[in-house]
Design a binder for these strands. Structure first.
Lengths: 202, 202
DNA sequence: CCTCCATGTTTACAGGAGAAACTTATGGGA
DNA sequence: TCCCATAAGTTTCTCCTGTAAACATGGAGG
């Protein structure tokens, strides 16, 4: 049959193909209401095939979220690696990179922090999220050591920072920072409020 | 027929009954994966009846979220109304009340801020959320006037505070504040970090 | 060369969403 | 007073989804 090349019985890397399709759909409509059958259909495969690679739709979503955390981590690290003068500047760059990522991939970002990406039942996802979180911890530690940040319980600072950045990202995604007539650059302004509490010099 | 009293053809206030059932289910399993049919079933009504009151499941969810915002607002106001010495203390009380509400109604709280409660397509929901947000704005304004808070663009402070409190609430809900071995009282500690940036006196 | 077994496919079924058509009370004119 | 328009429920129907089970295929190892 001439279709052998077009569609060999064994796909080769269906798992990856399904992920790519789902990622594309997620990016296209910025939500994850697509059905597993639709993903299979677009990947050109029978509707039951995905079950050989993912226990259920949730497992696929968690894998997407895991990839998202890896990408976010890379994005943040890239933003920090440019030669920046101070820890404060580095923090600002990292936070803004995170928020930019959220804005550019709002569907994926929301999925990453949604209850559909339950980290308590997926160690791999949990680890990926933790690794990204650790970037923040290391930045805070360095900042405390070089005298930029106040020497307070590191976890309180981490919780405050993480909460702040994530909260801003979510507000930014849902347009709440524009609609309410916040100033021209609400994100750095809000981050400055936090950094004023974080940094030694007022 | 003897059933007239048990189940009159017209329910009386089915809309309210559906909301109550859904609210109960939301509280019971802290998620909103229930089906509309299940809600109808438990309310003792045919599966199509809810459509007379809600366009679809989303409409019901948004109404639940709206109620949640009203309740949250009342909770916060109650927490602030106790005689507190300073604006800083009042802010702390309001923030902690918000986080306590989130912990005590994690399903509802997550729904309120999820994409399933889309504020851009539901003016009533949007207004309810805005009203609750306004409590924070007023508190910040008062704090700036009485000299407690720095006189910075009010919206930057509001965005920072809102993001912070909401972020902490989400972290608290998903147990991320305990698992990562944060100190004994991570929430006030993190809020102190923010308040240090907010307040005039360091 | 032949035979497993991972990877696909087909078939089957229990629900769910929602539309349409039908039924029942109820209250506001004629 | 009667009567019917209408709001509020119900029944029925169609399409779709998730998921399980049984079957097919072909590539890699003995």
């Amino acid at each position: 049959m001439s279709e052998t090349k077009d569609r060999p019985y064994h796909h080769g890397d269906l798992r990856r193909a399904l992920i790519d399709t789902a990622l594309a759909m997620l990016a296209a409509d910025q939500n994850w209401t697509f059905t597993l059958r639709e993903v299979a259909r677009r990947t050109g495969v029978s509707h039951a095939a995905p079950y050989k690679h993912f226990r259920d739709k949730g497992a696929l979503l968690r894998e997407l979220a895991r990839i998202g955390f890896v990408q976010l981590g890379e994005t943040i690290i890239a933003a920090m690696s440019s030669n920046l003068p101070s820890s404060r500047a580095q923090f600002m760059a990292a936070a803004q990179a995170c928020i930019a990522f959220a804005l550019g991939n709002s569907g994926l970002y929301r999925l990453m922090f949604s209850s559909d990406a339950d980290k308590t039942i997926d160690p791999q996802l949990h680890d990926a999220a933790m690794n990204t979180f650790r970037i923040l911890l290391q930045l805070l530690e360095k900042g405390q050591q070089d005298g930029s940040f106040r020497k307070v319980a590191i976890n309180a600072q981490a919780a405050a920072s993480w909460a702040q950045v994530h909260g801003l990202a979510m507000l930014a995604i849902s347009n709440q920072l524009l609609e309410e007539k916040v100033g021209p650059a609400p994100v750095p302004a809000a981050l400055d409020v936090l950094l004023d509490g974080l940094c030694c010099q007022k």
